[in-house]
Write a protein that binds this DNA or RNA. Structure first.
Lengths: 203, 203, 203, 203
DNA sequence: AATGAATGAGCGTTCATTCAT
DNA sequence: TATGAATGAACGCTCATTCAT
């Protein structure tokens, strides 16, 4: 489960767990602020209030923290999606999609800058790419499950592919809308996105 | 317009233009193969058959070549879109969208690996981000133009936003489908994407 | 006499002595396998089944274990020489030299890889050098004693120097023959060495 | 021929050759003074009056300079041996051996401290070991050649092995006599060594 | 006495960039 | 104008050693 099983310390005592946590927090902050490539391990250690060596006691290398952080966040994402999509019956189609969008948005609300960094890294690092794919796949399956519960309302038949397309559309719109200084209103954007998805899915 | 006006040479003679071109070709090849961060200027110069110093005669720094290459590609992209969308009348809605998708796809067909690198860089470098946004905006306006020509068929009213959403969806689906080893069939993916866009746009 | 009197624990209880022994065994194994510089204290401690801190309770630093191990081995060496050279009367000259060679060889038979490491360290560390010299001197005196017992047979007069030369020749031939992949047969080598020494020593 | 063909600069211009030479000189000085492990590349560069980067432009890594220096010295060694053993006829056996010893000693006279470092490294580094073996083998063949020219005087038949044994004896005696603070007189040592070899070789 | 988490100086190495020739 | 040697700050990482528990 743990992505780093090299020679790294696996903390069991309270102190060790705290230290590992402090390093991850500091790393996430710095990666978010300055990006992965412009953050160095000495900085992370200093920001975490530990020595450089301690960093390497808990993580094989710089990328390992990144993956560990991302891994941690992804658990929350899946949880959010599962939890946030409770009872959808008795609602309109647009409401249903809006609920989905909302759940998907939560992750970015929580750590938008780190997500931006993930987007950068997934195109240049195979490990980040693999993790991203796994997470994407997890989310997709969750979406498929949600769709299956309302099968009779749907016009799309190939749920696997539909879920993939929906997820991609959401991801990019969310990213690009956050980042850009486009003058296009965020609210209008999300409305159009929800509209598109709803028309696509439902009869 | 030129992003590099530092004290770089602006070649007017044939030889200088050729040299600049050779550097850009070599850089593009290497960026595509190994990524921006893992390519160094010495390598680019060698691959281009010039001295390290000459590189800096034509480009302010490593990022400048990247931007110059991207700039150059974006011209082709816009051209493709304009050219490829000629006469759409007398076709079905799905055909129209398929034609749009095809034009959009062309850019990735031409330089998929460089595009991947752009995707990585646009999230971590403000200049690349700005250029990407400008290009995205250019494409979007082009799409708006295309949409306006078939206004009476459309159900969407807010063409600016609709074009944005469409473009985002296409971009991400194309990227993710190229990269991932997901078992979802590329054809099914594009079909669903076209279907989604068509349902979104047309009455 | 003990090379480490810093503030290291000097075990008197059985358990402490055992621990010290376990550390020395583990260190010797690792030094032999990977060399002194490529073995680190953490590894030694783990291999010995103790905590890193405990290592420093018994030894001042990494070099101290090395010296302690070497010290220990040297006792055996001297013992071997004394024991192995019992009664030489009534034998031929070559037999006598062969017996000496055999005794000298024993040490290398026992721990050839550690000896190799000693050879490396004695040229780069003054303490190891000093210990090596002391051991060498001890062996030499022992050889002088052996020679003195057969004085009337000898042609060499300056036994001190002769013993030194003999010892050097043996050491290097043994080392180089062990290490190299020279196609020169080990047996022929030892035969020639014995022949040389015999001609040198005896009338 | 050159042991480093990695990505290192191969200087053709006068300046480059000078720089490479300065680095080798500085490295040899420092290796001799402080030993290989206690010398770092920054120091070498500083002592050579160049930047750290220049070091790595000419040598793959720290070990590469070491090997390059050793390589260079070995050429001189062989040359010395060939040149120094001119006409041996009409001399006594001991004179002949003394001449050989003298030629062999020259190398150590020239760079005794570097030779000491070679002795250390050849036991711990495979590449140095290999180079040492090659040089040793070269010297040995040279000695065989010298011996063959005086075949009728010799009692030894197996010249290959005899040369090996002689060389080993010389090497170790020279090393150990240089290093140690043994009270044994250097002159007596060399005399005994020559005596031993002469008795071994000649009828 | 024993643990193992923490330390941090120090190392080898890279590479974008400059500049003498 | 073109060259490629030279620069040196900066980085990722190791490991002998210490010390709070």
């Amino acid at each position: 489960m743990e992505p780093d099983q090299h020679k790294t310390r696996k903390p069991v005592q309270k102190r060790g767990i705290e230290t590992k946590g402090k390093i991850m927090d500091a790393a996430m902050r710095l990666f978010s602020e300055k990006g992965f490539h412009k953050t160095n391990t000495k900085e992370i250690a200093r920001a975490a209030g530990v020595a450089t060596g301690s960093f390497y006691a808990y993580f094989k290398d710089k990328k390992s923290v990144f993956l560990a952080i991302y891994q941690g966040i992804s658990h929350k994402q899946l949880g959010d999606l599962e939890g946030g999509m409770g009872d959808l019956d008795g609602q309109g189609d647009t409401d249903r999609v809006a609920a989905l969008l909302g759940a998907l948005l939560k992750e970015h609300e929580f750590s938008p800058d780190f997500q931006r960094e993930v987007s950068a890294m997934r195109y240049s690092d195979p490990d980040v790419e693999a993790l991203h794919n796994a997470i994407h796949e997890g989310l997709r399956k969750e979406v498929v499950l949600i769709l299956e519960r309302q099968k009779e309302r749907l016009r799309v038949k190939d749920l696997d592919t539909a879920a993939f397309v929906i997820l991609c559309a959401c991801e990019e719109v969310i990213h690009t809308s956050r980042i850009t200084t486009h003058r296009i209103d965020r609210e209008r954007l999300l409305f159009n996105l929800a509209d598109m998805i709803a028309r696509f899915l439902y009869k």
